[in-house]
Design a protein around this nucleic acid. Sequence first.
DNA 1: CTTGAATTGGACTTCGCATTCCAATACTAA
DNA 2: TTAGTATTGGAATGCGAAGTCCAATTCAAG
Lengths: 280, 280
Amino acid sequence: MNETAAPLTLDALRTEITTRYEALSKRLKQIARFALDHPNEMALETVATIATRAEVQPSALIRFAQAFGYSGFSDMQRVFQAHLLESAPSYQARFRAFREQDGAASQSTPERVLREFAAAGVVALEQMQRDPPVPALERAVALLAQARLIHVIGQRRSAPVAVYLAYALNRILRPARLIDGSGGMLFDQLGSLGPDDALIAISFTPYAPDTVEVAERAAAKGVPIVSLTDSPVSPIARLADVWFEIRDAEVHGFRSLTASLCLAQSLAVATGLHLEQSGG
Amino acid sequence: MNETAAPLTLDALRTEITTRYEALSKRLKQIARFALDHPNEMALETVATIATRAEVQPSALIRFAQAFGYSGFSDMQRVFQAHLLESAPSYQARFRAFREQDGAASQSTPERVLREFAAAGVVALEQMQRDPPVPALERAVALLAQARLIHVIGQRRSAPVAVYLAYALNRILRPARLIDGSGGMLFDQLGSLGPDDALIAISFTPYAPDTVEVAERAAAKGVPIVSLTDSPVSPIARLADVWFEIRDAEVHGFRSLTASLCLAQSLAVATGLHLEQSGG
DNA sequence: CTTGAATTGGACTTCGCATTCCAATACTAA
DNA sequence: TTAGTATTGGAATGCGAAGTCCAATTCAAG
């Protein structure tokens, strides 16, 4: 048994394995090679399975893990799993990692809050950059470019996004109208909705009932719908012709709007450019 | 038990979950959402752990897997694991592909626009993180925490920020009122303004005249003002007790709102935490 | 060879997991 | 309401996994 502290990252473990490789016994060398060559199997398979693949005894794997300071195989396996998560496009894991690294922080100073929101926003935007919803964007742009009048609805936390879209669409000369239900006339505003129009609906859990109902009525009238929402099973996603799944981070119980607004802005500007380029 | 063949890929499973979602029972819906939202946990964690996270019974997870044609949970989990393995190596390649393509930018595709906005947002947020306006934040929080009623004004591109602030402040139980001038009653809404209140004014070049005038009238009445603006020489910065200089990036003639909203959000949440911590 | 130490194989034990099952509960329809 | 049905919670089960241990084997040194 070795007394070194067990490596916490796969990189550290790799280094450790490499440097100590020559000193290992025959069987442990065999496992070391396998671990370096097949990190994914190390992350996902059971001891028995890996033992078979590597052509060693299960117990040898436990010894190997213990030789590198882990309490057992499962303990070491976590390192391999964590690595898999990091390299996968999982922004939640990375965000959690960030917050934990931030660590000691007992108090929530305004500065800390700001830093957290900024960090969450960066992660969300990077995620969106890495994995942009291209087909949806293109279809949405085409749809919005030819609509006679674009109606926009979004309530509570989605209201700012709706307000922004209405503003931006008007600026690029696409007639847009915000359905804000002021004066209790929410559904009265729907009178003029027709199949030549388009509706942009924005809603996140818990979905505002009014938004859902507006989308339902519009769908019934054959109005094309573009949805910004958070899940494929959202009520407004299933009604939509084009829908975007937006993963905004949540800090202190408040969802960020960073990704939503970035998408809204892109939608408006891309529509504008589309019109320009097609001689609009 | 369902007789459909169990989906073999995560994409197929996602589709299956989505289409059958409405027909699922309450608990199964809950699991469906969790599975769609946290594919990585589904891949790596044990039934017991996932059950805890998703707030369901372990047995419900087995039922869920079986409802989708799998023999048990472990069977379904393999699909999530396979996906993790696939996406892990490819992510690096995709990222590289993006950066290379970035160079030869001839056309403005929707994808490019989205990427530009995301990149601009990241830069703005990183700058804010690097150089956070701590003293202003702290003074603003103190000011907002003791205001009787908080009035918020912001027009055009600043409107979303104002809408968001009004929403968020109300959520943390700080009475807030949006001055939106609907029905042409902009200045009529100022009647109740008093020195116990506070005004948050948001405006960027070219400064909306109405916003400036509201700020001026408020200042004349001795109302404390917090300004979000873009320059120390902005008309609403001069009038303010606390002001923030926000440098949001501009892409294709459209200023991003990323930094503004990040600050707005931090302001609201920090105020909320301040009240909690001081026993409000 | 012989001896002692290190390494290894593999049966055994223990523990924790996925899965089952049934009683309790929540719905639904009459 | 009430009866019947679907859904759910959670204890009980059995199985398979990780981890232990010791006898067998290999290796090194004299």
